[in-house]
Amino acid sequence: MIYALCLMLIAVGLYGVVVKKNVVKIVISLAIMEYGINLLLILVGYRAGGHAPIMEPGASPAEFAAGAVDPLPQALVLTSIVIGLGVLAMMVAICIRLYERYGTFDITEMRRLRG
């Protein structure tokens, strides 16, 4: 159920990427896809009723390890989010370049203007 909703989020992003004409809309759809994939990775590591993988003073390691969520997907997603921001900045720069070259954000117009 939760996985299906998450997959639908990714599918909405993919739909936007392949169907929309506006470059900024495509960038936004890619961002939505990225959110869905990050959420999916975190969901895979979730333990029902689990607590965050941060130790408190006095907790025994074995007890802590038995009740914490998986820290590995979290570490991967943490880097993935920041990389996503850098990639988004680069995509926006490409959008501005395209606008300067063609005067429009519409990719079908760009195809016509090429030459």
Partner: peptide, 14 residues
């Protein structure tokens, strides 16, 4: 680096 990228992106416009 994130400050730099915003400064660069908003320094110019078409």
């Amino acid at each position: 680096s994130l400050f730099m990228v915003l400064a660069i992106l908003s320094a110019v416009h078409v």
